[in-house]
Structures are given as structure tokens and as C-alpha cells.
């Protein structure tokens, strides 16, 4: 099944809810958040995309001509034919929320936790949405563009042990 056939199938099922774009060899479809789960489910069940190769997010706060704040992409792979498809969706403040794809691909577990940890995007239906890389007591979302690279002084906030004390 080629990309064109997949797009035809998707159009038959969902009409014009999504847009497509292309850059080099990357084929992308951009789906609004309310349809993302249905589209991904359809892609997995009907089009053979059995592997979620990658799930990541970005903050488009300072991006030229960006309309939405948080973007999340799903790179799907069909392991029999080897073709890739990138599905993108967007979420917005104040409560960026997306449906979790954990029921479809178990591999999404940690990747969604990481996006939550770094950007604060909440994945509805995730079984265990906790911080994964940052400490639990950390409050900010460090990869957001409004968080400074050197942090807000959290890295100096520890007791000092001197020789006589230890």
C-alpha cells in the first residue's frame, strides 16, 4: 500500500478533516486533536501501521507563523512494507490535552510521559502519567520556550556538605 492509497482510504473514511504536507521524503498528515485517536486507530487497524516509531512534541511559541502552541507528532511505520507516515496534531493552552494512544501501541507509554514531563501536554487515558525525567517535586516544564535554558536556580538549591561535617 503506498501513501496515495492510504490517503484515498483516509479520505473515504474521514472526509476532509485532515490536511497533508510533504517535505523531502517525509509524508505528513495534520489532524485536529478531536479526530486524532480515530485516525490513528484507523491507520493501525486498516492500513497496517503496526509500529509507533516515535512520538515527540514541540512548543511553537516563537515559531514563525505558528497558530497553535504545542505540536505532537506520531511517526508510524508499517513493518511489512516499511513505509512511514508522520501524523501531526496540535494542542493549546491553558490545558493542552490529547487522547493517549497507549491502547493502540504500548510503546507510547514512556514517550507520552516524556512529552508530558517536558511540555505539560496531558494525555487523556494514559495509565500512569507521572513525570519521568525530572524530579517529582519539579514544577516547571523545561522544554517550553518560555522556560530559560539555565533554569530558574533549581540546580543550586541543595545543601552543602563540607569536610568537617562529613
Amino acid at each position: 500500500m503506498t501513501h496515495e492509497e492510504i490517503l484515498v482510504k483516509l479520505r473515504q473514511k474521514f472526509g476532509e478533516v485532515f490536511t497533508t504536507s510533504e517535505f523531502r521524503d517525509n509524508r505528513r498528515i495534520i489532524v485536529p486533536a478531536e479526530h486524532i485517536y480515530a485516525v490513528l486507530e484507523f491507520l493501525k487497524e486498516q492500513c497496517g501501521f503496526d509500529m509507533l516509531a516515535e512520538l515527540g512534541g514541540a512548543d511553537y511559541l516563537q515559531y514563525p507563523n505558528a497558530q497553535d502552541r504545542y505540536g505532537v507528532w506520531y511517526v508510524l511505520v508499517n513493518t511489512t512494507t516499511g513505509i512511514r507516515l508522520i501524523v501531526k496534531t496540535f494542542a493549546n493552552d491553558p490545558e493542552p490535552t490529547l487522547p493517549s494512544v497507549f491502547p493502540l501501541w504500548k510503546g507510547a507509554d514512556w514517550m507520552e510521559r516524556e512529552v508530558y514531563d517536558m511540555y505539560g501536554v496531558i494525555f487523556d487515558g494514559h495509565p500512569d502519567l507521572r513525570r519521568i525525567l525530572m524530579p517529582d517535586e519539579f514544577t516547571a516544564f523545561p522544554l517550553r520556550k518560555d522556560y530559560p535554558m539555565r533554569g530558574r536556580g533549581e540546580r543550586h538549591n541543595f545543601p552543602v556538605i563540607t569536610r568537617p561535617e562529613s
Binding site: M149, R150, G151, E154, R155, H156, F158, V160, S166
Partner: peptide
């Protein structure tokens, strides 16, 4: 690694 997560030298906190 002059970033938010890395301690800038352990000698600030242990001898």
C-alpha cells in the same frame, strides 16, 4: 552542559 538540570560542579556541594 550549562543547562537547567546539571549541577555546575560537584565541589559546590561536596568536598
Amino acid at each position: 552542559f550549562d543547562t537547567y538540570a546539571v549541577v555546575q560542579g560537584i565541589d559546590r556541594f561536596i568536598p
